[in-house]
Amino acid sequence: MSNKMNDQMMPVSIEQSKLLGNPLRIKIIGALYGTAKTSKQVATQIGESPGNVHYHVQKLYQGGLIDLVEEKRVGGVIEKYYLSKAKWFKSDQDVKVFPELDDSFESASATNISMSLQLKESEQEELLNEFRTLLEKWVERTSTPEHAMEEEFVIGLKLVSRKEKQKD
Rank of each mutant, 00 (worst) to 15 (best):
M1A: 09
M1H: 07
S2Q: 09
N3C: 10
N6L: 06
N6H: 09
Q8V: 00
Q8L: 13
M9D: 00
M9H: 03
M9V: 00
P11H: 10
P11L: 08
V12H: 04
I14L: 13
E15M: 03
Q16H: 02
Q16P: 00
K18N: 12
K18I: 05
K18C: 08
G21V: 03
P23H: 11
L24F: 05
R25F: 04
I26F: 00
K27L: 07
I29Q: 03
G30Q: 02
L32Y: 06
G34T: 05
G34R: 03
A36W: 06
A36I: 04
K37D: 04
T38R: 03
K40T: 15
V42E: 01
V42G: 02
A43L: 07
A43P: 09
Q45G: 15
Q45H: 07
I46N: 13
S49G: 13
N52D: 05
V53S: 08
H54E: 09
H54W: 10
H56Q: 13
V57M: 07
K59C: 08
K59L: 15
K59Q: 14
L60C: 05
Y61V: 01
Y61R: 02
Q62P: 02
Q62Y: 09
L65K: 02
I66R: 01
V69N: 08
E71N: 08
E71W: 05
R73M: 09
G75T: 10
G75I: 12
G75H: 14
I78K: 14
I78R: 13
I78Q: 11
E79G: 05
K80C: 10
K80D: 03
K80P: 02
Y81G: 01
Y81D: 01
L83M: 11
S84M: 05
K85S: 00
K87F: 00
K87I: 00
W88F: 14
F89D: 00
Q93F: 06
D94P: 02
V95F: 13
F98K: 01
E100A: 12
S104Y: 12
S104W: 12
S107R: 15
S107A: 15
A108P: 05
S109F: 14
S109T: 05
T111E: 13
S114W: 12
L119F: 14
L119T: 05
E121N: 07
S122H: 09
S122L: 07
S122R: 10
E123I: 05
Q124L: 13
E125A: 12
E126W: 12
E126A: 12
L128E: 01
L128T: 04
F131D: 01
R132Y: 11
R132S: 02
T133Q: 12
L134A: 12
L135I: 04
E136W: 04
K137Q: 11
K137C: 07
K137A: 09
E140Y: 07
E140M: 06
E140I: 06
T142C: 13
S143A: 15
S143Q: 04
T144W: 03
P145H: 06
P145L: 04
P145Q: 08
E146W: 04
E146K: 11
E146H: 10
E150A: 15
E151H: 15
E152R: 15
G156K: 00
L157W: 01
L159E: 00
K163E: 14
E164P: 06
K165W: 09
K165A: 15
K165G: 12
K167W: 10
D168N: 09
